[in-house]
Structure formats: C-alpha cells, structure tokens
C-alpha cells in the first residue's frame, strides 16, 4: 500500500503533516532541536512576541495540577526586533513553515508587530494571541470582547500580507460566537483553544501558588473541553481549524481531527516527552495505514457524520 498522505493546507499554507507546536511551549524551536528534527514538523509556532520586549510575571510561574499545569509566564519575550535578528535566521534553515504568534496591548501594537514580521523573509503566517489569560492587557481583553477581536483581526489583515490565524480563548460564554465574529472580520484560520483561567492555593502558606495569583490551565485535563470547542466551531464556521489542548499522543490528535481540526498543536506534552511531536506524526501515519485511509483529510470532521 502507498504511504498515506499527511499533507494538509491551512490558510493557503501547505503543511507536510498536521502536527504543529503550540505557542509558548516550544520556545523559538532551537530549544528542542536536540530531540526533534524540525524539518519533520507540520509547522513551528513560536512563543508569542510583542512589539517591545516584555519582562513577564513574577515567579512562581508554574504549578502542576491534576493532569495539567497552570502557568502564568506573562508573555515574557524579547520583542519583534530581537526575534528577527536572533531567532528567525536559525529557523530559516529548516523547510518547515514558521508561524509567529503575536500579542499586544493595543491594536496599534498588533499592527506594528505584524507589519515588521510581514516584511521578514521566513515568516509564513501570523497567529493572533488574543487569548492570553495572564496579562492585564495584551491579550484577553480582545479575546473576550467580540468587537475588539473583530477590530484587531481586521487591522492585522489590512497591515500584513500573510495568512492570519486567530487563537481563541475558552474563557467566553460562546466560543462559536467569537469564531463567527473573527471569521467575518477576515481571519484565515482559527486556533483553539488557549488555556483556561484557573488558580491554585498553597494551603500551608495560605496564599496563591502563582506569583500572578491566577494562571492558564493546560495539559490533558483540558482536552475534553478543547475537543468540544473544536466540534462546535467546526459546525459554526467554514474556516480551517487548528485544534489544541492536552494533546499527548496520536490518538488524542486524531480525536481533534475527527472533531473538525485540520491540524493540531502539541503544547504541554513537549515538557513531558520532548519527542512528543514527532511521535504523534508517526502515530497518525500508523493509524492511517492500519485503517486503510489514504489521506488525513478524509478524517477531518469525520465524527460529525456518525
């Protein structure tokens, strides 16, 4: 039998397989090259960048919870300029598309960051992080407000000649409402979901564990919530979806694909298993072979026609 086809297309980007890295869990790629051949990934999604460097939140920034982690990094990043000078040249040597996640305090900051990145050689798409729960500004105020989300999407689309993927927050009443709004505003694809807002308390010290008090929950604990979000959004909009939230193995990834995701992103699992992304690519391929499926695209949304 012929090798099954794993290639997918997201917003005009041809990906050799549907497995991406989730922003914030894979640094700028170089951190994982001792474990992973970046050429074998569908795309690398880098840590969110802001126009200017950001210091991030006070530690502790991470705490383990049942089958999950709460983090509150607070968008620490070197800023767009240093990314272009210090990190992007390294990523250019790989054939894998680089998707740059951006965040900002204001629409002007998103736009300025997008313009700079669009002019650089080696940036294949932008992911708008409007869903970071860990900063007072620069994220979720756009992600929970449909008008703000639409406005930032439109502004970045106008400013940058690149595919724009909008990453949605689960911390909203209706994720399908948000999805429709940003789809109408011109988004080319959607990533879902970002972390769920949560917190943990140290009962011996009688205080919140995280320096920022609250954080974003990720990991296998949130997977069912994310699968449900992908399922609902798949029915609500026509855009290609990138599913993420607790994917740790190929079976998890296939679950998202059957719910309607055309690609998936692996986040927290990189911390447990630095080769998780590659193992998931291989596992998906094996599943297709074992089940006589010639093309991964046949599985996208397959669970909707049960």
């Amino acid at each position: 039998m012929r090798k099954p086809s794993l290639t997918v297309e997201i917003a005009g980007l041809k990906l050799k397989n549907p497995v991406l890295t989730a922003s914030g869990t894979f640094g700028f790629g170089a951190e994982y090259t001792p474990f992973v051949d970046l050429n074998r990934l569908g795309a690398v999604v880098v840590k969110s960048l802001t126009l200017k460097p950001r210091e991030g939140n006070s530690p502790p920034r991470i705490v383990e919870t049942p089958a999950g982690i709460l983090n509150s990094i607070g968008l620490q990043n070197p800023g767009v300029e240093r990314f272009l000078g210090e990190h992007l040249p390294y990523l250019r040597q790989f054939s894998t598309p680089v998707i740059v996640s951006i965040a900002g305090n204001t629409i002007e900051e998103y736009v300025a960051a997008a313009e700079k990145l669009a002019g650089a050689n080696g940036v294949s798409a932008l992911e708008l992080n409007i869903s970071c729960p860990n900063v007072k500004q620069g994220g979720l105020q756009f992600g929970v407000d449909p008008l703000g989300a639409a406005e930032v999407t439109r502004a970045v689309k106008r400013a940058a000649d690149l595919p724009v993927i909008v990453k949605l927050s689960p911390n909203v009443t209706s994720i399908t409402g948000m999805a429709k709004t940003v789809a109408e505003a011109g988004a080319d694809a959607l990533s879902l979901i970002n972390t769920l807002s949560g917190m943990a308390i140290d009962i011996y010290r009688r205080r919140p564990v995280l320096g920022n008090i609250t954080g974003g929950l990720s990991g296998p604990a949130i997977r069912p919530v994310a699968v449900r979000a992908v399922w609902e959004v798949y029915r609500a909009v026509k855009l290609p979806l990138i599913g993420m939230g607790g994917i740790a193995c190929a079976a998890d990834a296939i679950e998202f694909i059957m719910a309607g995701a055309r690609a998936v992103a692996v986040g927290t699992a990189n911390f447990l298993n630095p080769r998780a992304t590659i193992e998931i690519v291989k596992g998906i391929e094996r599943y297709l072979e074992e089940n006589g499926i010639g093309d991964i695209n046949e599985l996208v949304g397959a669970a909707h026609s049960f």
Binding site: T25, G27, P59, R61, I62, N71, I73, N270, F271
Partner: peptide, 11 residues
C-alpha cells in the same frame, strides 16, 4: 516546566 529553556517558567 520544560527544563530546556523553552517555557520560561523557572525564572
């Protein structure tokens, strides 16, 4: 978190 410099948790 990651131990390899990617997640910026242990600062």
């Amino acid at each position: 978190g990651c131990g390899v410099g990617a997640c910026l948790s242990c600062v």
